[in-house]
């Protein structure tokens, strides 16, 4: 079982990428769950989305308290939320930030594998908009190896083709690729 928590703000697409990542994993034969946690939801408020992935059918219907990996869409949430809460020792945390991963060590400590990816920066290049989510998924796949890059690309293409223009599909695939390439496993 692999459990992921995504930190974002309502409206940033945390739920959407949680669902996308679950669907891509489902497509390669894994068992999945993806769910948001709703507070008194309003745009801009801090919120979480979660993904559970397993090779066996998933019986649990509880919250994810001890994630294996954390994605932070909005780096300011590192200041206001406890983004490493329950994160397993040596767990992965990927932050959308231009800063170095070392700059977060002071705040988050040495117990985790901290990665930063300038996902907003990369997204601006491909979308002309700050939608960093698929960049972060590319990075997540590199760091976690839950599925391989081609599976993520194929699954995303398959899903987005039904909804988005070919240009936007392409922009998303490039975002994934660049997020994947950017993250370096030391």
């Amino acid at each position: 079982m692999f459990e992921i928590r995504i930190h974002g703000r309502a409206g940033q697409g945390a739920k959407t990428i949680a669902q996308l990542f679950a669907e891509v994993n489902l497509a390669v034969g894994k068992f999945v769950q993806a769910f948001p946690s709703y507070g008194p939801a309003r745009e801009g408020a801090a919120m979480n989305a979660f993904v559970r992935i397993d090779d066996q059918p998933i019986k649990l219907h509880s919250d994810i308290k001890k994630p294996d990996a954390v994605l932070v869409i909005d780096p300011l949430l590192v200041e206001t939320e406890n983004v490493t809460q329950g994160l397993k020792k040596n767990g992965i945390i990927i932050i959308n930030s231009n800063a170095s991963s070392d700059s977060f060590k002071k705040k988050l400590g040495n117990n985790f594998r901290i990665y930063t990816v300038p996902a907003s920066h990369i997204a601006l290049k491909f979308f002309k908009k700050d939608i960093p989510n698929t960049v972060l998924l590319g990075a997540l796949v590199k760091a976690t190896k839950i599925i391989c890059l081609d599976e993520l690309l194929d699954g995303t293409k398959e899903k987005f083709m039904k909804k988005l223009s070919p240009q936007l599909v392409e922009a998303n695939l490039k975002s994934i690729q660049e997020g994947y390439n950017f993250l370096k496993i030391s």
């Binding site: 949680a18 669902q19 679950a22 669907e23 489902l26 068992f31 999945v32 769950q33 993806a34 769910f35 948001p36 709703y38 998933i58 219907h61």
Partner: peptide, 12 residues
């Protein structure tokens, strides 16, 4: 079905 736990949870 359980609200949110099932209704908003994506599964295969």
């Amino acid at each position: 079905q359980d609200g949110f736990i099932a209704s908003h949870n994506l599964e295969g």
